[in-house]
Design a protein around this nucleic acid. Sequence first.
DNA 1: CTTGATTCTGTAGCGGCTACAGATGCCATA
DNA 2: TATGGCATCTGTAGCCGCTACAGAATCAAG
Lengths: 134, 134
Amino acid sequence: MKPFRIGALSRRTGVHIETIRYYERIGLIPEPPRAGGRFRSYDDGDVARLGFIRRCRELGFSLDEIRDLQALAQGGAHSCAEAARTARRQLAAINGKLKDLRRMQKTLQALTRNCVNENEPAPACPMLETLMQV
Amino acid sequence: MKPFRIGALSRRTGVHIETIRYYERIGLIPEPPRAGGRFRSYDDGDVARLGFIRRCRELGFSLDEIRDLQALAQGGAHSCAEAARTARRQLAAINGKLKDLRRMQKTLQALTRNCVNENEPAPACPMLETLMQV
DNA sequence: CTTGATTCTGTAGCGGCTACAGATGCCATA
DNA sequence: TATGGCATCTGTAGCCGCTACAGAATCAAG
């Protein structure tokens, strides 16, 4: 496989060009060699690395956590236990957010239920009334 | 009721002092008069205003949306319909986030299920394996 | 020869705070 | 009277994870 440029890497991974450069800047991906001293030059390994990052992002991991997961994947000992711990922490965070969002959803549903779509001015709007009460 | 200072307003509303000043800076709450030309001076109206903002924030509205909702609550005509529209938009956004989070939750659960808490190095970690696959 | 595509570097902006630094003033205690 | 502590003040910079420019260089196609 021939090496390719940042645009191709972006197309292959679905990660924006600017984001790829950003990841490089913060040291999440290595600085690639430059073709002709000018263009960043990538290969399949970079596609894999970036895909790993993208999948982790889709699971909600922070870039710092992904840095750790990458290191674990490179594989010192005890990697699996630590990775699993990170994942369970993330799962707990997600469960917390789900709880919050479900509460918001419930409240908003209740607020809009009373609010039929009439052109009432504010004093007659049940939702705004409720929000204004202490 | 006597007017009070920012610390008291913060205690009464549960909104941090710096956040109150931030809201003032971006024009979400009005500039209060200064007691002795020095200290911001608030009253019950400010408690109500800030409470409104806090409740809206807890429902996930952006500060810009809250600006709109405040204006609607001051009450021109058609306020109720517009407020309800804003709320339903917000509800839709929340439903979208819930969907995303549930997907993350499911995936993470699946990933960690296979990952018993053993001290396996990375090549034997089912979670990292999966994340590394294309 | 122009146009458009792609890449480059560098910097600034987003939202919604949060965390300082450094000054000022006031009250209570020693 | 000196001192310490508290609350407040202004202003600025930082957080995260991008995103959006500006302005230059290079190349291929028409």
